[in-house]
C-alpha cells in the first residue's frame, strides 16, 4: 500500500502505533498493528462485526492498555503525556454514552473540561468553542433541553458537538453516525471531511456503513485479527481489501464519482 498524503505529514504522523496488540484480558483481538495516521485526513476504520474496530480505537485513545507495542500521539508515547494535556490533544466519542440528566449545553461544555479544570468557570473562549461546536452539528436549538428529552439522533449530534468542542488535533470517533438518518449521516460525513481537510484535524472513526466509509479520505481495513490494509479508498478497492475483510465478495460500484456498496441479495448466505 502507498501513502497518498504529502511527505511532511508522513514524517510526523498525528497518531501512530508500532507492533500493537489489543484485546480483553488474555483474549487477543488484534495483533501486529503498525499504523501512521496523518493529520488533515479523515480515516475510516471498517471491518466485520467483532473484527476489532472499537478495540483498536479504544487502545489508540489510551482507554485500554495495549497488550503489546505502543501508541504515539504527535510523536510522543501516549502514556508520556500528562492526562489533561493528552485530553486537549485527543478527543474521543464512545459508541454509546450513558443516560444523563444534563442539558445539551452542559454536555458540550464538558468537552472544555481539560482546558479549564475543576474550579474554572467557562471562559468566553470556552463558550465560543461550545457555540461553534453546537452550530457545526446543528444542535444549538436544543441547547437548554435535558438529554433525556432528545431523540437518539439529536443526542448523537450533541455528543459529537462535545467532541468538537475540545478542539483537539486528533478526533477518535466510534460509530459517529449511530442513530442518525441518512441526511444527517451525510451532514456528519461532510463535517468530518471539513474538519480534516479544512482545519487539518486527524479524524479517525469506526464506520459500519460501507458506502459512508467510502466517502472518507483513507481506510483502515480490519480482518482476521490484523490490519488487512491502510490506504486511500482507491487502493482499498484495487486491492479488494473489503472482500478479504468480510470474507465474501463485496461489490462496490462507482456512480458520479462516488463509491457505493451494492448488496448482492442473490448470493448464497454465508456460514
Amino acid at each position: 500500500m502507498t501513502n497518498a498524503l504529502p511527505s511532511a505529514h508522513r514524517s510526523s504522523p498525528a497518531l501512530a502505533c508500532r507492533g500493537l496488540a489489543a484485546g480483553y484480558g488474555a483474549r487477543v483481538v488484534l495483533a501486529g498493528v503498525n499504523l501512521d495516521v496523518a493529520a488533515g485526513a479523515w480515516t475510516a476504520i471498517v471491518g466485520a462485526n467483532g473484527s476489532g474496530k472499537s478495540t483498536l480505537l479504544r487502545t489508540l485513545a489510551g482507554l485500554a492498555p495495549p497488550q503489546a507495542g505502543c501508541v504515539m500521539l504527535q510523536g510522543r508515547p501516549l502514556g508520556a503525556w500528562p492526562r489533561r494535556e493528552r485530553a486537549r490533544r485527543l478527543a474521543w466519542l464512545a459508541q454509546s454514552a450513558g443516560a444523563t440528566d444534563l442539558s445539551a449545553h452542559e454536555v458540550v461544555g464538558l468537552g472544555r473540561f481539560a482546558h479549564g479544570g475543576w474550579l474554572a468557570t467557562p471562559s468566553s473562549e470556552d463558550e465560543a468553542a461550545i457555540r461553534r461546536a453546537m452550530l457545526a452539528t446543528g444542535s444549538l436549538p436544543w441547547a437548554e433541553r435535558r438529554m433525556s428529552t432528545l431523540s437518539g439522533g439529536e443526542r448523537q449530534r450533541v455528543y459529537l458537538a462535545r467532541v468538537l468542542a475540545v478542539e483537539a488535533p486528533v478526533l477518535l470517533l466510534d460509530e459517529p453516525t449511530t442513530h442518525l438518518d441518512p441526511p444527517h449521516q451525510e451532514d456528519i460525513a461532510r463535517l468530518l471531511l471539513a474538519q480534516a481537510r479544512g482545519c487539518g484535524v486527524c479524524v479517525v472513526s469506526a464506520i459500519h456503513d460501507l458506502s459512508l466509509a467510502l466517502t472518507a479520505d483513507r481506510l483502515i481495513v480490519l480482518g482476521r485479527g490484523a490490519v488487512i490494509g491502510h490506504g486511500t479508498v482507491r487502493e482499498a478497492l484495487a486491492g479488494d481489501w473489503l472482500s478479504a475483510a468480510f470474507r465474501t465478495r463485496v461489490e462496490i460500484v462507482e456512480h458520479d464519482g462516488a463509491h457505493l456498496w451494492r448488496p448482492r441479495l442473490d448470493a448464497p448466505a454465508r456460514d
Binding site: 486537549r88 490533544r89 468553542a129 461553534r132 461546536a133 452550530l135 457545526a136 452539528t137 446543528g138 436549538p141 458537538a161 468538537l164 468542542a165 478542539e167 483537539a168 488535533p169 441526511p183 444527517h184 451532514d187 456528519i188 461532510r190 463535517l191 471531511l193 471539513a194 474538519q195 479544512g198 482545519c199 487539518g200 484535524v201
Partner: peptide, 13 residues
C-alpha cells in the same frame, strides 16, 4: 491548536 469546528457547517438547520 486552532481547529475551528465552525468552519465546517452542515447545511441543516
Amino acid at each position: 491548536m486552532n481547529a475551528r469546528p465552525g468552519a465546517a457547517r452542515p447545511t441543516e438547520a
